[in-house]
Simulated assay, not measured.
Amino acid sequence: MIKTALALSTIILISGCSSESEPPASSASTSDTATEQSQPDYETTDQWVGRWTGVEGLFLKISKDEPADPGHYLLEMQYGLDAEQSGTFEGQATDEGISFSRDDGQQLLRAGDGEATGMKWLAEKEDCLVVATGEGYCRD
C-alpha cells in the first residue's frame, strides 16, 4: 500500500512538472501564429490595383500609396450620382479587404461577385469589389 501511494505520488509529481514546461512552449507558438494571422495579405489587395467600373458612370480606381507602408492605397471614387459623392480616400489592407473612411463613414472594400453587389446590371460579373449592397465595382 505504501509502495502504491509512493508510486502515485511520483507520477503526479512528474506529470505536474511536465505540465508546467508545456504551456510556455505552446503559448509562444500560439502568439507566433496570432502574429502571422494578424498580418493582412497585401498580395491579394495589391491585385486590386487598377480601374473598376460601377453602373451609370460610377467607378473606383485603386493605386498603391507609394510613400506609405505596404498595404496602403489611394481609392479614387465616384460612388454616387451627385458630384459631391466622389473623392480620393486613403485605404489600408485588412484581413477582410481594404478599410477606408469617407463622408458617409467607415467603409470596407471586399472581394465579391456581381451577385454580391446587389445590382442587376452587374449580376453576371465574377470579379468585383463591394462596399455595400448597392455599391460595387467590377472588372470585365
Rank of each mutant, 00 (worst) to 15 (best):
Q92N: 05
T88E: 12
A34D: 14
Q47W: 04
Q78N: 07
W48M: 08
E126T: 15
I14G: 07
D65M: 00
I2C: 02
P70K: 14
E135Y: 12
Q37R: 14
I2H: 07
D41V: 06
E84T: 14
S63F: 03
S63I: 11
I98E: 10
P70Y: 06
T94P: 07
I11A: 09
Q106L: 14
A68I: 03
R139D: 01
E66N: 00
S99C: 00
A28G: 03
A123L: 06
Q85G: 00
K64I: 06
E43F: 00
I12L: 06
E20G: 10
Y42M: 10
K61S: 15
E84W: 08
A83F: 06
D127I: 04
S26I: 15
A25P: 00
D113V: 10
S29V: 04
D46M: 08
V130M: 03
W52K: 03
H72E: 08
V55E: 00
G112S: 12
S63Y: 04
A116G: 13
D32C: 00
T33P: 00
K61M: 15
M119W: 02
E20Y: 11
G136C: 10
G80P: 04
K120N: 08
A5G: 12
Q78T: 11
T45H: 15
T88L: 09
I11W: 02
G54V: 14
Q39P: 08
P40W: 02
W52L: 02
D103S: 11
G118L: 03
S63L: 07
Y137T: 06
S15K: 06
D140T: 13
A28T: 00
T53K: 08
S27T: 12
S86T: 09
D103E: 13
L109A: 11
K3D: 09
E135T: 13
R51C: 05
Q39S: 15
Y79M: 06
T35I: 11
T117G: 14
D69Y: 09
C138H: 01
K125H: 03
L8R: 03
C138R: 02
S21H: 08
F89S: 07
T10S: 06
I62K: 06
M1P: 01
R139V: 04
S86D: 04
L81W: 02
K125Y: 00
S21W: 14
Y73T: 09
L6A: 09
D65S: 01
Y79H: 12
